[in-house]
Structures are given as C-alpha cells and as structure tokens.
C-alpha cells in the first residue's frame, strides 16, 4: 500500500496531465473549426474553375496537353499527406496504411510526403521519397501549395512518373476520418453536365487558357486534400485528447478513493495504538 503522501503526489501529477489534455482538446477543436471554414470558403473557386474547364474541354485535343496525356504506367508518384505532430490516435497510421496498400513495388513508386510523420516513416524504411514538406501551418495557406504542385507537374511532364495520386485522410465527420486515394494526374476528364450557353472568345487561345487552368485545378486539389487532412487531424486529436482527459478523470477518482482509504487506515491504526496503550497503562495501575 502506497503511503498517503505518495498518493497525494500522484493525484497532483495526474490532474496536471488532465489540464494539459483538456487544453489540447480545446485547441484542436478551435483549429478544426478554422480549417473547416477555410475548406468551405474554397468551394466556390473549385466550382467555378471546374465549370470553366468543362466548357473548355471540347475545344481542345487531349494529345496536345502534357498534363492530359495518358501513358502506359511504369512509374507512379504518391503524395502522402500526414501530420507534423502526434497525439492524434491512429490518424497517421491509417493514412500510411492506405499508402502502403497503394505501393505495389518500392522501385516504381515514388513518394512526396507532406508532414513529419509520413516522412519519418517512409524514409526510415527506404522508400523513394523525392520531396518532403513540413510546417505548412494550419490551415495551410494556398501559397504554400505552389512548390508542391510545381514538383508534381515537373515530374509528370518530364515523364519520370506516369500517374500521380494523392493519399490523405478525408474528413467525413468529427468521429469519422476516412483514408482516401484520389488520382491527380493524368487528369480525369468528365463530360460537361449542362450544355454550353455562350460562345467564348479565348485570349490568347483556348489551349493556353486550359494549360494555366489545369495547373490551378491541380493546385486546388492538393490544397483541398491538405485542408481535409488537417481537419481530420484536428478532430482525431480532439477525440484522442477527450479520451485522455476522461481516463485521467477516472484515474483521479480511483486515486482519491485509495487516498481516503489510506488516510482512514492511518487514523484507525493510531486510534488502536492509543487505546491499546491506554488499556496497558490502566492495567498496570491496578
């Protein structure tokens, strides 16, 4: 049985931990809200850019655009989006697991990692990581995406890779974050949904507009994936910290119980000693 003082110290340290986890839970919650509203604010752009692309698509030939080219797949590039920090439950391992399922052959699959956790995992195991990005901030500003998309587009146009996929955690709800893989390049072209109304003049030319637009849409897709991933990260952390806070609370309760027990035992022991002594003295007097 631990001494009263030891138990007291233990209670104190656990309540300190509880304070920290509680704070982390609230910070993660606030950041998640911020990230979600950034995600929401980015939707109109995506919608408009996509409409413009669909309008343009019938006017150009797929073969003319390096970003639309479909080649036989020899080498693939995976962009794996994880978090910089831990303490968010199984969040990172879920994404890494999804990436590992996609990688059939270490030799033909190249990686770009976003976030420290993914980087550390894949570099330690000798995967071909061609670039790594960390510390984008939360929510990540759009401008931080440009270098990532630059490398991806360069590698694809040079022919070093024949397809590019994004692996990230899709934010479904507070409790559900689903590891997801989407294809980024070659560009998946869809048929325009609504018939085209106006006949546009394109300056300088349709193909130059499409060239620029494709780059923006690719950037946007990466941006959206990173925001989704960050929202997932924060909600995973929020849940993890909530559990930790609850566990700490339970632990404190049981510690308080044994503290009281130990204290009472002490008192009982002292009382017994006192009354025994008294009885002995009295018997001696007689």
């Amino acid at each position: 049985m631990a001494s009263v003082r030891e138990i007291k110290r233990h209670i104190k340290s656990v309540s300190n931990i509880k304070k920290i986890t509680k704070t982390m839970q609230m910070v993660a919650g606030a950041k998640m809200q911020k990230t979600l509203s950034a995600l929401l604010a980015s939707r109109p752009y995506a919608q408009l850019a996509w409409n413009l692309l669909l309008n343009l698509a019938p006017k150009t030939e797929r073969e003319l655009h390096p970003l639309l080219q479909i080649r036989g797949i020899r080498n693939s590039l995976l962009v794996v989006i994880t978090s910089d920090r831990g303490l968010c439950g199984a969040f990172n391992m879920n994404v890494i697991g999804e990436a590992l399922r996609q990688i059939k052959d270490k030799e033909t699959h190249f990686l770009i990692t976003v976030g420290k956790k993914g980087r550390d995992f894949f570099i330690r195991r000798g995967y071909k990581v061609i670039a790594e990005f960390t510390g984008l901030g939360a929510p990540a500003p759009f401008i931080s995406i440009t270098p990532i998309s630059q490398i991806i587009i360069d590698e694809f146009i040079k022919g070093n890779v024949d397809e590019v996929k994004l692996v990230y955690s899709d934010y479904v709800s507070n409790v559900i974050q689903r590891p997801t893989t989407i294809q980024l390049l070659p560009f998946q072209q869809e048929q325009p949904e609504e018939p085209f109304l106006a006949q546009f003049i394109y300056e300088p030319s349709p193909s130059e507009v499409i060239e620029n637009l494709l780059v923006r849409i690719i950037e946007y897709k990466i941006y959206a994936a990173i925001l989704e991933s960050q929202a997932s990260e924060f909600s995973a952390r929020m849940m993890a910290m909530k559990n930790a806070t609850e566990n700490a609370e339970n632990l404190i309760q049981s510690l308080i119980l044994s503290y009281n027990k130990a204290r009472q035992e002490g008192i009982t022991k002292e009382l017994t000693e006192l009354s025994t002594t008294k009885a002995v003295i009295e018997s001696l007097k007689k």
Partner: peptide, 10 residues
C-alpha cells in the same frame, strides 16, 4: 462594361 462579349482571358 455591361454586355461585353463572352470572353475568357488570363
């Protein structure tokens, strides 16, 4: 201005 011809430019 208003009623400009439909146009897309960079």
């Amino acid at each position: 201005l208003a009623r400009h011809v439909p146009l897309v430019s960079i």
